[in-house]
Write a protein that binds this DNA or RNA. Structure first.
Lengths: 225, 225
DNA sequence: CAATCAATCAATCAATATGTTGAATGATTG
DNA sequence: CAATCATTCAACATATTGATTGATTGATTG
């Protein structure tokens, strides 16, 4: 009788879009791409996904209009397309968190609680830095660290952290940071640190928030970036 | 050993969620459920999806935590679960629209190019009104509407349209009109409606053409205006 | 131009997802 | 309790998706 909106194309379009986001690998890739233009091989390194597989997922993302490409010499650089992509991701993540909180009301999962126990505000960070209560841990790659970092920060890229934990003092609170809210490196670092029993927090805003607040940055040429 | 973010469970959870939204049938079902608690068979009627199939998709949604159920007699009623589900929906839809608009830029510029698929003639409008196939949408401000409007028209000023879309029926073609050819309100309205998947047309002549043709006008004192 | 590098393509297999059918369950009605 | 109604389950056929491998294309380098 009532042949309704099943046939309306918007549902198919939205579904396609959702399906494109429906694979962890593609989400991981998108996340990295959101941090800036990256070549395919860099993405394989960052994500640990096999080369051809990475390429396929990237093309899936491209077909869906979520990323765009340009060629630079022999490399193909992927960047985020225009449009409210981050909103979708944020909404999905927030919904996932909401569900997770409901399910795990009892369990104290340090990763899933993006709250006061995990994050440290810029204000609190500045105060505790003055009191020398914290150690800053920059978990970005070396080159990014060299360009600019928070004063006094130690640089241990996230993927080396597990091996180099010994370099971190036990007697202070470790505050990890990376490229900013959309970057998960510091969250990963926190998971590792907490698993190993370090007192640790995450400065979610990362370098961008710090610099935007007009606080000093150490490094070669952060201004030019 | 490289502990990258591929292993971060949030990506899997978000991906699961996205995959659940990655099928037009489930989106259609969700959409209906969002309007209120509904039983399975009602949903099959509304959506046109086969019974067992509907049930399966509903259970998929339930597993994903997007809907909840309760029993009422022999029927099982589905309702939307708590949490920011609508946000995800809205974000996805808005992204889909964004892409669609980019594609459409080649095809036509909806405001400047009168397009027969978009505009409805007075003759066709009259005919379809007689058959009760259309809903008239007056997008002018309230006071103008009060003075005079097409018979049976609903009044939703253009700038409130986005918030009040729920007031419009899905099963009829929405015909938007405003002050006449030189007024862009109805064109804006059409953009919104079509972006959200409404079957919609524009009566470009608006109230002036209607009245000039000697057709009846509802309202307090159109003559005096 | 041959060698090399980055990325994509093509082909395959395994794993999942979907739609359909008909049977089974759970609750209500007479 | 048998009959009925609403929903779910189970099983199957089919389609889609994902990972892997090796070949191929495009651009650069010497």
């Amino acid at each position: 009788m009532k042949r309704t909106d099943v046939h309306h194309p918007i549902f198919d379009e939205v579904a396609d879009l959702a399906r494109t986001l429906g694979h962890a690998h593609r989400l991981v890739l998108l996340r990295h791409i959101a941090d800036g233009e990256l070549a395919v091989e860099q993405l394989t390194q960052l994500s640990g996904i096999a080369l051809a597989n990475t390429s396929q997922h990237l093309q899936h993302l491209k077909r869906a209009g979520l990323v765009q490409t340009r060629r630079d010499g022999k490399r193909v650089l992927y960047r985020l397309a225009d449009g409210p992509i981050e909103n979708v991701f944020a909404a999905l993540r927030s919904l996932a968190n909401h569900r997770r909180e409901q399910i795990r009301e009892f369990i104290n999962d340090s990763i899933s609680q993006p709250d006061r126990l995990e994050n440290i505000s810029r204000e609190e960070l500045v105060r505790r830095m003055r009191n020398d209560e914290v150690v800053l841990l920059d978990v970005r790659p070396q080159n990014e660290f060299a360009t600019g970092h928070l004063p006094g920060a130690i640089n241990i890229p996230a993927d080396e952290l597990e091996q180099r934990l010994a370099e971190l003092p036990r007697e202070k609170v470790v505050v990890a940071y990376c490229r900013g809210v959309q970057c998960v490196l510091s969250a990963d670092a926190l998971a590792i640190l907490r698993a190993r029993g370090w007192a640790s927090r995450r400065f979610e805003g990362g370098l961008p928030e710090w610099a935007a607040a007009g606080l000093g940055v150490e490094g070669t040429n952060y201004e030019s970036g």
